[in-house]
Structures are given as structure tokens and as C-alpha cells.
């Protein structure tokens, strides 16, 4: 720790002389996961629809269960899969932390590296 004068902070890097709330690291990771999920989701759903159906003449479109085949696979199957993926992501990577200012269970939230034990321990604090 070094003393900071107010002029020192001008144009320099942000200060880093305090204890960080350990719960925020998990939030950053979870935000990245959601962003990555969105990219993959957009690409996959679009790719499925375009591969199966783009530019086909009306006579070539097959209907399955009342819907065009390309629609059933993209809007139906692919979307369903991507609606289930958040469940897996949350179970595997998301951390349950206390939301109170101090964080009721300091121990469980500091070891952000060890995801599985963190998840189990935090389960009964929420």
C-alpha cells in the first residue's frame, strides 16, 4: 500500500490498494460465459436454418409435424437445445454466493478457483 494523493490519480492506472470483494470475480466469469453462449447460440440457430432451408423453392420445402423442415430443426430442435444449455452452464460454472453487503459466508466465496466445492458449500447458505 502506498499513499495516494488526488493529483496522483490523474491519467494514471486505476488504484489497486484495497481488498477486493471476492464475489465479483465469479460475476465477471459468468458474464463472459453468457456472452460466449449468445455468440454460439446465434451462429448455430442461423446456420441450421440457412443450411436446411435458405433459397429453396416452395415446392422443395418438406413439412414435418406441420412446420417446414428447416424451421423445425432451427426454431424447434436447436432452440430447445439452447434453452436447456443454460441449465448445464449454471450447474457447472455458476456460483451461489450471498448477496448481502458483507457476504454471510466469507469462506465459501473466497475460493473462486475451486468451482465444484464452492458450489456445494454455497448451496446451503442461500
Amino acid at each position: 500500500m502506498r499513499p495516494m494523493s488526488s493529483s496522483d490519480s490523474q491519467r494514471s492506472a486505476p488504484v489497486n490498494d484495497f481488498e477486493e470483494d471476492p464475489r465479483y470475480a465469479a460475476s465477471v466469469r459468468e458474464a463472459w460465459i453468457a456472452g460466449a453462449y449468445w455468440v454460439v447460440y446465434t451462429i448455430v440457430v442461423t446456420a441450421v436454418a440457412w443450411t436446411l432451408g435458405y433459397g429453396k423453392a416452395a415446392e422443395e420445402i418438406r413439412y414435418v409435424l406441420g412446420f417446414p423442415e428447416w424451421f423445425l430443426w432451427s426454431a424447434g430442435v436447436a432452440t430447445l437445445v439452447f434453452c436447456l444449455i443454460p441449465y448445464v452452464l449454471i450447474r457447472r460454472y455458476f456460483v451461489e454466493v450471498s448477496l448481502s453487503p458483507h457476504g454471510e459466508d466469507g469462506d465459501a466465496t473466497t475460493r473462486t478457483g475451486d468451482r465444484t466445492t464452492l458450489h456445494d458449500e454455497a448451496g446451503d447458505t442461500a
Binding site: A34, Y37, C83
Partner: peptide, 20 residues
């Protein structure tokens, strides 16, 4: 249908940090 994951994305991107 692209709006389907809105709840997941909203709560994950603003995240628990926002809530805390």
C-alpha cells in the same frame, strides 16, 4: 425467437455483482 434466452443473458451479464 432470439429473445428466448433474455432471462439468462440479462441476469448473467448484469450478474450477482449488480445485485450485491
Amino acid at each position: 425467437l432470439f429473445q428466448a434466452p433474455a432471462a439468462f443473458i440479462t441476469l448473467a451479464i448484469l450478474g450477482k455483482k449488480f445485485a450485491i
